[in-house]
């Protein structure tokens, strides 16, 4: 029999899994299986080219095309209707991370955050869904961000706040934005 915790008995998915495997399986094994399957799907998509990101339309120092697309997705929500022309959030991130002589101290952490929109594993962990933001239409993307904003899940709220902070921080380095707010450095 499937081992069940006291909070989650008679779940349909448990019965389905039991039926499929004809074997008892514990919850940890089930989670590991799910993660491994997701990793294989991710690998397969990358190998077969199903997950190829769009080529960035601008020259970048080091930011990958995929991360350019990801930060653009975030920017299309957080800084939509920005009253400053010619601000490219992908280029701003590229410059922020790679525009100085030496590496950014938290480059890895920022890239982990930026990778979320295209990461199957990331979206599975955060959004409990295998569908990435890169595969959603504009309305679905907006609904996902709004869901995270008002979520009861601290992780979803936290990711929203960090993405907001990153986008706003990138905008604030823009001279035209500074002028818009009445500041000139």
């Amino acid at each position: 029999m499937l081992k069940k915790d006291s909070n989650n008995i008679n779940s349909t998915s448990d019965h389905l899994l039991e039926h499929l495997t004809n074997n008892a399986i514990d919850r940890n094994a089930f989670l590991k299986l799910t993660l491994k399957t997701s990793a294989l799907v991710y690998l397969a998509m990358n190998v077969t080219g199903c997950n190829l990101s769009k080529k960035a339309p601008v020259a970048l120092k080091k930011l990958s095309d995929q991360n350019y697309e990801n930060i653009t997705i975030m920017g299309n929500f957080f800084i939509k209707d920005m009253p400053v022309q010619n601000f490219n959030i992908g280029q701003a991130l590229d410059e922020y991370l790679y525009g100085a002589k030496n590496p950014h101290p938290t480059e890895k952490a920022i890239l982990e955050l930026v990778s979320i929109p295209s990461s199957i594993l990331g979206m599975l962990y955060i959004n409990k869904s295998l569908i990435t933001l890169t595969h959603m239409n504009d309305a679905e993307k907006e609904m996902t961000f709004l869901k995270w904003r008002n979520s009861h899940d601290p992780l979803q709220r936290g990711i929203y706040t960090l993405m907001h902070k990153l986008c706003m921080s990138l905008v604030s380095g823009n001279v035209d934005y500074q002028k818009y707010t009445g500041i000139s450095i």
Binding site: I79, K80, F145, S169
Partner: peptide, 8 residues
């Protein structure tokens, strides 16, 4: 800019 909690 980072602390103002709105968007768009």
């Amino acid at each position: 800019t980072a602390l103002v909690p709105f968007y768009g």
